[in-house]
Design a protein around this nucleic acid. Sequence first.
DNA 1: GACCAGGTCCTTG
DNA 2: CAAGGACATGGT
Length: 215
Amino acid sequence: MSGSSSADDKIKAERILSFLEDTYGGISWWPGDTGEVMIGAILTQQTRWENVKKALALLKEKNLCSIAAIHTAAPEDIENAIRCTGFYRMKARRLIGLAAYVMETCGGIGCMETMPTKELRAGLLSVNGVGEETADSILCYGFCRPSFVIDAYTVRIAACAGIKTPRPGLKALFESVLPENTSVYRQAHARIVEYAKERCTSKRCEECRILALNG
DNA sequence: GACCAGGTCCTTG
DNA sequence: CAAGGACATGGT
């Protein structure tokens, strides 16, 4: 009972991840180019992905589904297309701010691709409306960087599993028990979301706890 | 009608 | 720093 809680948390995380891999196998997620991933990452904040898909389709119809297009579009046109994702006024502002950062500060997506991950992450976080989860989603799914995404589902599963590491440390915890590989991170995150949506719906689900305890 | 959804920022104590 | 509120629409 006196072992380091960090080591204990690692074992629990490993058991959860291993169970999810056996249960769900390979999952493909977030198709689309880098710009679309960036837009989707903002739109999905506090929002179901089904609604985000509708908004992305509307943006495509209007040829607004790219960072360059968002950069020059009328805010009202963006708002109208993304209304179904909620918080649409604020999200339109965030999209415009992100596009301005990409196009003006960075000089386009192409320039960002050559930036070191650490620097790229810091730059994204400097944009208003881009927090840790959004930045990591963009890095992992948009720029193919091994940056593990911690979202509400991951936090919930970790809590149910009895993992004691506080939220700010979860990213490092999960990264420490996985090979540093973008595809591995993507799949692990996708499985966590799928599992949480269908099985870990209560805030203290027994299944996660047992899983983390026994493997 | 209440409650929640793949967050983030800003304001208070 | 922790806690609370604002942002807003759509589905159960």
